[in-house]
Amino acid sequence: MLTQVLKTLAHSVISLFLLFTFVFFMIRIMPGDPARLLGGAGASDYDVQTLRESLGLDRSVMEQFLIFVRNVAQGDFGRSIQTGQPVGAEILTALAWSFSLVTAAMLLAIAFAVPAGVVAAVKRNRLPDISLTSIAVASTSLPAFWLALILIEVFSVNLRLLPSGGTGDLRNYILPTVVLAATQVGLITRMTRASVVEVLTADYVRTARAKGVHPYRILLRHVLVNAAAPTVTVVGLQTGLVLAGSIVTETIFNWPGVGRLLIRAVQARDYPMIQALILVFGVAMVTFNLLADLLNMLIDPRLRKK
């Protein structure tokens, strides 16, 4: 089992390096000059050139790349072009905000989607299935920005029950959590439904019925564990994706997370910040997938190789 984890990690390091290299060169192809953006409209060519040199952007791209790789290897991601602060600290703060929001959203999504998927599978092709699956897919199909604006309109503007944005107390979590969860509900419901449907027709479920096991117990002891793997995998994958991809939600709700940080960094052509963020997103993807794999191995001993 340990070798499997090590192997996955080794693969991850390679893919992260490729991802990072790709991003490094792509953002430098992107039109726009960070030095000119930082200097502002009134800066002279000379000022811009001085800025460029101080940022190390006058060197060749290859040289910049090698310097950057060396620094990253030493744990130094550089300083933000916008603020001059080390990007690491800024990202960590934002990551904490994003992570707490994503965790809440995924838990909410699972709390709805897994029971919904199970019920839909048991009552397949009947009313509970059709209604639950429809709700799940519909909520995922709503664009996040639209849902967010509607919720703000109803709960913040009209009812004045919940704050429309920012990070005051726990009430601030409610609306962004609901919006993010809604985007995930459809996929998790469908996944759970599909695997439970498959397990329900398995021979060992028939064996359990032939033993006289109660249907609820069959569901709990024989079906759910065996149907868990695909859902666990999808949740792992989606957690990574949502962490990196909640830009719209964070922007609308003025949430100080990594999504908003990325948008600002791109607008300012803040190369070190963009590079570091991409790397963080990559690490997040890898970590959550690995966690999902580990959880699956815990559930199913057959996945553990000797």
Partner: peptide
């Protein structure tokens, strides 16, 4: 399972794998 019990054909798939 109590007064009448059944043995199935496929031993590979008829037991709960987990």
């Amino acid at each position: 399972g109590n007064r009448v019990a059944m043995i199935f054909q496929e031993p590979m798939t008829s037991l709960n794998p987990l």
